[in-house]
C-alpha cells in the first residue's frame, strides 16, 4: 500500500466529514434525515462559482459567500417547508413516527437542483481564483497540495469547533434542549424556531463550504456533484452512530480508507460491493453504529 493511497484516503475522508458533519447536526438535533443536503452543497458550490467566476472574489470571500448562500437555502427549507408540514402533521395527529421529512427534503433538493439546471443549463464550471491553493509541498516521496491541507484542516477544525459549541456554549445548550424536548425548551425561554433555523443555517453553511472545496478539489462543478456524496453521507452518519460527531468522524475516515484501498485493487463495482458489504456487517455487529447510544429497542431485545 503506497503512501499516496493513504493521503488520498485522508483527503476523501475529510470531504466526507465536511459533508456529513452538517448532516449529523440536523439529524442529531431534529431527527430530520435531510436528503436535500447534497443539493444544498451543490447550491453552495454554484453560489461560490458566481462569486469566483463573475465577481472575481478571492477564495476566502468565496467560501464565506457560499456558506451564507447554502446556509440560507437550508434555513429556508426548515422555515418554509419542514416546519409548516410538521405543524400540519402535529395538529391532526399527536406524537408518532414521522417520515414526512424524508419526502419533503428530497423534493426540496429536487427543486433546488431543477432551478439550478434551469439557471445554468447544466453546463459545468471550474473555480478560477485558486492559485493560493495550488501550491504543492513535497514530503519525501509524497506530494501534498495546499488544497489537500486546507480540506483536511477545514474538516477537522470545523467538526471540532462544532462539537465544542454544542457541548460548551449557551447556543449549544439551546440546541440540545430543543433536541430533547421542544415544548420544554420553549417553556424555559428558548425559542425553538430560532434555534432550528440557526441549526439548519449552520448545517447548510458547512455544506456550502464543502461544496466550494469539493468543486476546487475535483476541478468541476455541475448539478450532480451532490448525488454521490449524499449516499455516502447517509451511510457515514448512520454507521458513526446517529447524532454522534466523533462517531461520524471515525466513520468518514474508515469508509474513505476501505473505499480507497479497495479501489486500488478492484474494479469500481467491486469497490461498492466491499464498502456496502462492510457496512452491512458493521451494523450487524454494532446495531447502533460505531459510537451510537442504545436505541429504544435496547430493553425489548433484552441485551
Amino acid at each position: 500500500m503506497s503512501i499516496d493511497l493513504i493521503k488520498n484516503a485522508i483527503v476523501l475522508g475529510s470531504v466526507y466529514l465536511l459533508f456529513a458533519t452538517g448532516f449529523t447536526l440536523v439529524f442529531g438535533s431534529f431527527k430530520v434525515m435531510n436528503l436535500a443536503h447534497g443539493a444544498i452543497m451543490t447550491l453552495g458550490a454554484f453560489v461560490g462559482i458566481y462569486a469566483d467566476n463573475v465577481l472575481g472574489f478571492p477564495i476566502g470571500f468565496t467560501l464565506v459567500v457560499a456558506a451564507i448562500g447554502a446556509g440560507a437555502g437550508n434555513a429556508f427549507l426548515d422555515a418554509v417547508i419542514l416546519r409548516p408540514i410538521a405543524r400540519q402533521s402535529a395538529s391532526t395527529h399527536a406524537g408518532a413516527e414521522d417520515l414526512n421529512p424524508i419526502v419533503a427534503t428530497l423534493s426540496f433538493g429536487t427543486i433546488v437542483l431543477g432551478l439550478l439546471v434551469q439557471t445554468v443549463k447544466a453546463v459545468d464550471f471550474t473555480y478560477k481564483q485558486t492559485d493560493a491553493l495550488a501550491k504543492p509541498f513535497a514530503f519525501g516521496g509524497l506530494t501534498v497540495s495546499s488544497l489537500d491541507l486546507a480540506i483536511v484542516v477545514c474538516a477537522i477544525v470545523m467538526t471540532g469547533l462544532l462539537s465544542l459549541i454544542i457541548a460548551k456554549t449557551r447556543a449549544g445548550m439551546a440546541v440540545r434542549a430543543v433536541a430533547e424536548d421542544r415544548a420544554m425548551a420553549s417553556a424555559l425561554g428558548v425559542r425553538p424556531n430560532v434555534v432550528s433555523a440557526a441549526t439548519f443555517f449552520v448545517s447548510g453553511a458547512m455544506a456550502g463550504v464543502c461544496g466550494v472545496l469539493v468543486g476546487i478539489l475535483y476541478s468541476n462543478v455541475n448539478v450532480t456533484i451532490g448525488d454521490h456524496l449524499l449516499l455516502f453521507g447517509f451511510v457515514i452518519v448512520t454507521v458513526g452512530g446517529l447524532g454522534s460527531l466523533t462517531g461520524t468522524a471515525i466513520a468518514a475516515y474508515l469508509v474513505a480508507l476501505v473505499q480507497t484501498i479497495a479501489n486500488a485493487y478492484f474494479q469500481a463495482a467491486a469497490v461498492d460491493l466491499i464498502v456496502f458489504g462492510t457496512l452491512l456487517l458493521t451494523l450487524l455487529i454494532r446495531p447502533n453504529g460505531i459510537l451510537g447510544k442504545n436505541a429504544l429497542s435496547a430493553g425489548i431485545a433484552r441485551r
Binding site: 503506497s2 499516496d4 493511497l5 488520498n8 483527503v11 476523501l12 478539489l217 475535483y218 468541476n220 450532480t224 456533484i225 448525488d227 454521490h228 480507497t260 479501489n263 486500488a264 474494479q267 469500481a268 463495482a269 469497490v271 461498492d272
Partner: peptide
C-alpha cells in the same frame, strides 16, 4: 483503472 461513472474523484486513478 475503473471508478463509478458519476465519480469526480480521480486522485487514485491519476496516482495509478
Amino acid at each position: 483503472f475503473s471508478l463509478p461513472f458519476s465519480s469526480l474523484d480521480f486522485s487514485n486513478a491519476i496516482d495509478t
